[in-house]
Design a protein around this nucleic acid. Structure first.
Lengths: 251, 251
DNA sequence: CGCGAGCTTGATGCCGATCAATGCATGTGG
DNA sequence: CCACATGCATTGATCGGCATCAAGCTCGCG
């Protein structure tokens, strides 16, 4: 496992590389596409997911207009997705971490409708979409799980709409931080100590705020003793204080 | 067809009724789930979609927490979907019209995560989801089309995020009106004359604005000669003027 | 006719955007 | 190793768009 990780890092400059760990041996199995499927399915899925790709920090996994052929399961790293309007304003639509799926936006039109940019050196597993459809016609558990993933993405988007449409700046940042720590905890990381992989501007874009507003909100949280902020190093001191903000007791 | 519509309206008080028109004879076929599938598939889909339900104006088709079992294809009428936070603020996440699908939010957790409320007396066709999954394992065209529908919903949500995160009040309303007229045109209605089925407050909730702001934006558009507004009766005089706003030339 | 829900319009205030200056960390070339 | 550039973050001062509060208006309906 350790040597595996090491060799992967060593080969990081290769854009496309043969696959080294089957889904069955991947420590993200419980978070990723293979969740809750049988041995036989897992076997077939593993053989389908035959290539991996490395994406350096700042590079695009795909961009608006790129032909869609595969979904991408994040094996390691961190991404943002963003859309933009004709006149150049852009909106970060999400941040994705290990075990999460990228590329669902492309299914509808066979072209990607957003950019996916790596916020740190990352690796993704390619899941050829036609093959996934074929396989999910064979295995109802896989089919079901894939449908759940898409549906949850829709539900997540609704949550972001609620945030953008009805919350104030500090509530938004609190909700964002709680969401991040929640997802990190699921992955076995500390819930209280985290390193942001994105800039204030990217957070602001996601939350519908300007970077100065994000910065001020961080400072305010620090003054109130909810957080310790050192650039991108965040220590959450009072998660319940953040939760209270989200729940609107701060009105 | 006329008598069909008539009897349906007469039976509107019945909540659940036997199905009278198969998908193959439905004039929404080209907009709805059956799009682009073979005769054999259409036959099977029709027999699966065996019940219809009437929902009176103001009533809920489903609510947060309701068990999920079916998707709903809107046969006639108009709906809104909304989510709400713990402290009661709620956010309209979409408006749905004939030929569109409701209920995708429920797949992920087997419970609905939003409310779907009829904004006028409406009828929906029930699509039992397990049966749809079964059928889409048999027919790859149906499978593919269903995946496209889900993906497009995700892409639509991204568009709403862009709107909520980066547009100003008048841009939001312009984008909203253009989207509505576009969808009405697809259904054979005039692109210039429409009757809003929702209140200013519901529009405001969807757009992340207060009802007064929506009202003022309507008045402004009228003053500028872009629209004629009489309560919920809207005549679009200069669609290109609205388009220009969305494109950001107004900055 | 009178009630009430929904819409319009005005006056005021506040939150977050904008503009601007400074600080801080990292990297690069002389 | 220092000087300098660069990208990102912080903080302050000011401004503007939208929310808020408030008052009347319109229209459908019992």
């Amino acid at each position: 496992m350790m040597s595996e990780t090491h060799s992967a890092v060593a080969a990081a400059q290769l854009r496309i590389e043969p696959f080294k760990v089957a889904c069955s041996g991947c420590n993200l199995r419980e978070l990723c596409l293979p969740l809750g499927i049988s041995e036989a399915e897992l076997e077939r899925l593993s053989s389908m997911v035959a290539t991996r790709r490395s994406v350096a920090r700042g590079e695009a996994l795909f961009r608006v207009g790129d032909p869609f052929a595969s979904l991408y399961a994040i094996r390691a790293g961190f991404f943002k997705t963003s859309v933009s309007s004709e006149d150049g304003r852009d909106q970060v639509t999400g941040f994705q971490m290990a075990g999460e799926l990228l590329g669902l936006d492309g299914i509808g039109t066979d072209r990607h409708t957003c950019d996916a940019i790596a916020l740190e050196d990352s690796q993704v597993c390619l899941i050829p979409f036609h093959q996934l459809e074929d396989l999910s016609r064979e295995f109802s558990d896989l089919q079901r799980h894939f449908h759940r993933i898409m549906s949850r993405e829709i539900v997540r988007d609704h949550g972001v709409m609620l945030l953008l449409g009805s919350m104030r700046a500090e509530e938004r940042l609190a909700a964002f931080l709680l969401n991040l720590t929640q997802r990190l905890r699921t992955r076995g990381y500390s819930a209280s100590s985290l390193v942001l992989r994105m800039t204030r501007e990217e957070i602001g874009s996601y939350l519908g705020l300007k970077l100065e507003t994000v910065s001020r909100a961080f400072s305010k949280f620090q003054d109130e003793g909810l957080l310790e902020v050192k650039q991108r190093q965040i220590h959450v001191l009072k998660p319940e204080g953040l939760q209270a903000l989200v729940n609107g007791s701060g009105c």
